[in-house]
């Protein structure tokens, strides 16, 4: 059974339909990369899974249980955690407090604050510093740590490399690869196609609210994905997974 299942999910922003009937399944230990141009609906899809947007139709399943009607905070307790675009730390609170807030509401599990510090050693020195005073890389590490301490069944990552210095991006991705190696189930949105193909086990390319190409990352070429990305692959048969 897949950890996360989407069935014909639709999300509207007012008149605009941002997600148009997406069905996906993410298996245990899998890393699914959502790629696509700006406005394709990736962030909306991720936020709908986390509960920040209420879907207009369709279902969201976590370990087979329907969570579509649950508010965001209850999905955290069920095992969905989102690292939002722009990190969105509580800037006036310390790194420790950011982690503690999340820890209080998550599931029991192996992830503790100590383990977050072991995973992101650079946070140790900044543990008592206000999150607003951190560098971009430190902020991203805190944001990922904040999601991890809730011990999610599935971790959602929205553009974790956005606005970071290249070296900081490398360090964040190093940690992600370690997480993936340890068997985490992840859905991530990534602008950089090459990076998405390298880190993910599966790739889904979105265009205008739909998944137009989906398949195993290893079986996909950059050219195929970028064709789908710009809508050139529309009408072709989706690649078999």
């Amino acid at each position: 059974m897949s950890v996360l299942g989407l069935e014909r999910l639709e999300v509207r922003h007012g008149q605009l339909q941002a997600v148009r009937g997406i069905s996906l399944a993410v298996a245990e230990g899998e890393t699914l990369a959502l790629v696509g141009a700006n406005g394709a609906g990736k962030t909306t899809l991720l936020r709908a899974i986390a509960g920040a947007h209420r879907p207009a139709a369709g279902r969201i399943l976590l370990d087979g249980a329907d969570v579509t009607a649950l508010p965001a905070y209850r999905r955290v307790a069920q095992g969905i955690a989102l690292v939002p675009e722009g990190r969105r730390l509580f800037a006036g609170m310390t790194v420790e407090e950011n982690l503690l807030v999340a820890r209080a509401n998550g599931r029991p599990g192996p992830w503790t604050i100590e383990r977050v510090l072991a995973t992101f050693p650079m946070l140790r020195a900044r543990f008592k510093a206000k999150a607003g005073s951190l560098s971009g890389g430190e902020q991203q590490a805190t944001a990922i740590g904040r999601a991890l301490v809730t011990n999610p069944r599935v971790l959602l990552l929205d553009e974790v490399s956005l606005g970071l210095a290249p070296i900081a991006v490398e360090r964040v991705y190093e940690c992600l690869r370690a997480l993936i190696g340890a068997g985490a189930t992840i859905v991530l949105v990534e602008q950089d196609l090459g990076r998405a193909l390298r880190v993910a086990t599966r790739v889904a390319c979105m265009l205008e609210g739909r998944v137009v190409l989906e398949g195993a990352a290893a079986a996909m070429t950059r050219e195929q994905v970028s064709a789908a990305y710009f809508g050139l692959a529309r009408g072709e048969e989706p690649q078999p997974a």
């Binding site: 509960g51 965001a72 955690a81 609170m93 999601a147």
Partner: peptide, 24 residues
């Protein structure tokens, strides 16, 4: 306290607080 931190988190950013499991 936990409730105190949750209150501060919600005061700063209620949407994100919800995303880390706080019932705002």
């Amino acid at each position: 306290t936990g409730l105190g931190r949750a209150i501060r988190a919600v005061a700063e950013d209620p949407d994100t607080a919800e995303l880390v499991g706080v019932d705002s």
